[in-house]
Write a protein that binds this DNA or RNA. Structure first.
Lengths: 358, 358
DNA sequence: CTGTTAGCGCGTTCAT
DNA sequence: ATGAACGCGCTAACAG
């Protein structure tokens, strides 16, 4: 036709976008019938004859349903949101991998959001995911221990749920929601136990920001393991810094300056451990593990690349992502109480730990 | 429960979801006015009085627009799709980081899709992104050199564009689309040049699958650099394997078995380089760089953690993601010819390369 | 400046 | 088994 005033879509060859209506016309059936054969949900079946015609028409026209329109009509989308601190961090990248694999098996798309550790941004993304009417949101990464923040987080999550969305946390976010979390305390205990068995009695801890729940839990594990053996974690044996390689390096320098007599260092994640290794070996000239033993946490790929290969606590990161998706998908179970899945961790002994000297 | 026949949404306290209509009612204005103050686009301004009432009502009711509904009405969404091989790979994770940062600045959400190097899955995700009516798609990662695949890819992309979507490639996908790509050839030439200057004349190459365009381009750079210096790359000087650490290790073993006299190895990405380092040092007992020099490509974080620290070609990965988003956002420029942005790379000399012996 | 109204593409009763 | 018609929440003419 000459003028199409309201045409806003890029036109298909024959002038308009390929909609269900067009498929129906092409097949000589009603739009309802077309909808039924293409998206089946309607309950009733459709006769072989028409069914074939619709399928053929759809194929010929290369019809693709309009997800936003379906979302509007069904009041439900097929997207889940994944909120992480930083995709560039191998820890989150591994979780994301698990999530994506699970999503694909269930025909879900995942919207990724990275907060770069800014709590406000986390709230902001929650809004945007609500705006998008995401069917569910996966909150990954360590939570922030700040009560005020946890309050607003709970509120945002509450709204999301009120809108009909589902929520699952990966790790402890201080919120009443289904959660899958690795056994951080147990992992830390295992790490300390390992060092203890090797004869280490003066162990230092290179910790991340205590505002992160993950850090708290790992520290708790350290304390518990030590106390069980009649020792308390001295205040001068813990240094807190950024949860990164650079943080680990700085913290280790400070730690060893305060306590040059330490025979072992436990870094609360592998990033920090790699930094600690650099500090120990390159800055301080202390050989690992001959003079100082080192243990990390997470078992990121880099733990293997580094020399000596890092003894660390392995987290089933990818599986964590998958499990979180399972929580989301099991819609039946969300009645009743909160579900909590604790994932087992495993100490992986490699070359960065050895017998304590003397 | 009583019976709310068509209620499909989780109800708000007062019984229904918070829609624009409700906000309008609450503020005592028409829905059009509410729309105008909340989403401004309508052209005309709104009086202070009403404007204030609408804002207040929206805040009080905690209104959040329904993106699918807006998408339907406007025939345009605010989501861009990002297709990568594997988020777990630091290479793609870095690109994704750049994309996400740029997206946030422009109020766009990103849907992530990981193909795990399965071409069919790439096509499938293109369909799904078209289904979602993504405003644009970013095709990241190395393309597949298979002509048949490139054909279907071009077709899929064509449909996407016909539907009004935009496309930008990261790296060469053999397709006529706006592209941002690092200078793979130049980087490889620089790497070889560096080794040459150090006196190396017997250089082996540890390559990824030749089906990937990235690998091809890097190999071309190698050949060009060598030929410029009067040498040709011997067939026995190149081994092809998976583009991974394990691939690098295996390929290096094979390479050195064939040519024990090599004084330098160029691995076509850092993953392979790390594997090569393991093979050289641990399996073969050859010291790096004293006996064999090693160069990688990409400058992933692990290049720094490894000992000796890896000499490698740095790619501006995060910037690559940002630039690709720029192409998407510059809608004005998409008339006329194809835009190609070539990103400069930089050789970073660290400790894995040294003078050739003898 | 503000309100009315007609779609956007689709799912879903409700008749037939 | 099939079709007609309404509504999902919102934008964008168009009319006042």
């Amino acid at each position: 036709m000459a003028s199409t005033p309201r045409a806003r879509k890029a036109p298909d060859r024959s002038g308009r976008a390929v909609t269900l209506q067009r498929v129906a016309d092409h097949a000589g059936v009603s739009i309802a019938t077309a909808s039924r054969v293409l998206h089946g949900g309607g309950g009733r079946a459709v006769g072989e004859e028409l069914r074939g015609r619709v399928l053929a028409a759809a194929a010929e026209l290369n019809y693709i349903p309009n997800a936003p329109a379906q979302a509007l009509a069904r009041a439900r989308t097929s997207v889940v949101g994944l909120i992480v601190h930083d995709v560039g961090d191998p820890y989150f990248a591994a979780i994301a991998t698990g999530v994506m694999k699970a999503a694909r098996e269930h025909d879900l798309m995942v919207m990724l959001a990275a907060t770069f550790r800014d709590p406000q941004l986390e709230l902001e993304y929650l809004r945007r995911l609500r705006n998008q009417r995401a069917r569910a949101v996966l909150l990954a990464g360590s939570g922030f221990a700040d009560p005020a923040f946890v309050g607003s987080l709970a509120e945002s999550l509450g709204r999301f749920v009120a809108d009909g969305g589902q929520v699952a946390c990966i790790g402890d976010h201080g919120v009443e929601a289904d959660t899958v979390a690795p056994d951080n305390r147990g992992g830390a205990e295992a790490a300390i136990g390992h060092l203890w068995e090797l004869g280490h009695r003066r162990i230092g801890v290179v910790a991340g920001p205590s505002g992160l729940t993950t850090v708290r839990h790992r520290l708790e594990g350290v304390r518990r393991a030590l106390e069980r053996r009649g020792q308390v974690l001295g205040a001068d044996c813990t240094v807190e810094a950024d949860f990164t390689r650079e943080g680990g390096r700085a913290a280790t320098l400070e730690l060893l300056a305060r306590r040059p007599d330490l025979t072992a260092v436990f870094a609360l994640n592998d990033g920090m451990a790699v930094g600690a290794l650099t500090a120990l070996r390159d800055d301080l000239g202390r050989s690992v593990p001959d003079e100082v033993s080192l243990v990390g946490f997470d078992d990121l790929p880099c733990a293997l690349d580094v020399r000596p290969a890092l003894t660390t606590v392995r987290l089933p990161l990818e599986k964590t992502g998958v499990r979180a998706m399972d929580l989301i998908l099991d819609e039946g179970a969300d009645r009743g109480s909160r579900r909590i899945v604790e994932l087992e961790v495993e100490l992986v002994v490699r070359d960065s730990t050895g017998l304590a000297r003397g």
